[in-house]
Design a protein around this nucleic acid. Structure first.
Lengths: 205, 205
DNA sequence: CTTTAAACTGACCGGTCGGTCGGTGACATC
DNA sequence: GATGTCACCGACCGACCGGTCAGTTTAAAG
């Protein structure tokens, strides 16, 4: 195998397993040895590829987490269909994935925000960055919806984006352990109603 | 000082400082010695009053956290005024406290849920219990609102409760570090709109 | 076959943490 | 003022964790 290919393969394996365990047990409660044991690799291999545990996490966030948020929450609302429908379907799909996930530990991004807030500003910078990208994309999708006449022009796009993200982060926390399916159903039903209230007011002539 | 009074006083001091540090740095990242140093007490004093670090946490949750949620989020919506107004004001006050808190680390309850989910079922039981009490009280407040004619009778009280709790948990996470005041404003504006959509439809005769 | 650099091993180190335990001072009771 | 108990002290233990390093394996290149 090509040398640099092997390097990439090993580093990727480590990152995938690392994200998995950090998600399950938290960053500080997962030792480097835990990850290595899962992969049957040694300490030396880890520190040959990464400068430190923190450097490792940064690369996981940049490589895997960012992509995850993009594919799950950003790209699905970039289509040309009715923005409100796209958002509804995107949230529904994302939550459905969580419901079917046997071992659900919540929304990775918000779990990390909770763990590093006030403890590691460097990591928080990266996490806030992802959040901001999500917010910006939501806002522009909403504005496109207003432009296309699917959303009332009086709607405050920034406000709606914040409210949507808030509710999503919250429901993912709530769906952990207690009746995820029932809570998803109730949440989606209210979300639909909330989004419906943004449809353009019919102008009766 | 009376013996048992002194005992209570010391235990309470420990719990208050413990909650403070667990909130700031997380449970697993706060050592028993960290708490003791703050209080100029020794290990022996701690383990004289508490069986273990976990027992200590359980007592904090039962004594301090539960009371905190009650006084901030449950009692304020128990009044006789219009339920929707009570909820609005309650959320506004709770978020305003967070805005003015120089060192804000989010919503204690959801922070703990994030930290212990999938790691400590015993603690999760206590946390889910608080969440459920909150939910039940919200539902009954909403039903009272329907009974009193302040809320449309078609409104799904359980759904609204889940949606409110979700959005609150989420906005508290979002308000951490990045523009808390602006985000609070946007959130509250959308919350008002969402709640307004529940007012009874005027029956024009 | 030899050279060489990359990939990896695992023993080891300094430090931290939860928890233990023998001891000590303060103070109420007799 | 002797006695006993409550509240507290702090040295210590064993487990664990992030990180280092001297050395071994692997495999491409000459």
């Amino acid at each position: 195998m090509n040398k640099s290919l092997k390097r990439m393969a090993t580093m990727n394996r480590m990152q995938v397993t690392g994200l998995e365990l950090f998600y399950k047990k938290g960053y500080y409660n997962t030792s480097v040895d835990d990850i290595l044991k899962e992969l049957s690799l040694s300490k030396g291999a880890f520190y040959y590829h990464f400068d430190s545990k923190e450097d490792f996490l940064v690369q996981i966030i940049e490589n895997l987490l960012t992509r995850k948020v993009y594919s799950m929450l950003i790209e699905p609302i970039e289509g040309h269909a009715n923005t409100l429908d796209l958002i509804t379907e995107c949230f529904d799909d994302a939550l459905e994935t969580a419901v079917h996930n046997e071992m659900d530990y919540g929304f990775v991004l918000s779990n990390f925000i909770n763990e590093f807030n006030g403890r590691n500003p460097e990591i928080m910078k990266h996490l806030n960055n992802i959040l901001q990208i999500w917010e910006v994309n939501l806002v522009s999708a909403l504005q496109k919806g207003k432009f296309n006449g699917n959303i009332d022009r009086h709607v405050d796009a920034e406000g709606v984006a914040v409210y949507l993200i808030s509710s999503y982060i919250g429901i993912r926390t709530l769906m952990v352990e207690t009746a995820p399916s029932a809570r998803k159903y109730r949440y989606m039903s209210q979300l639909r109603q909330y989004l419906k209230s943004m449809e353009p007011k019919k102008v009766t002539v």
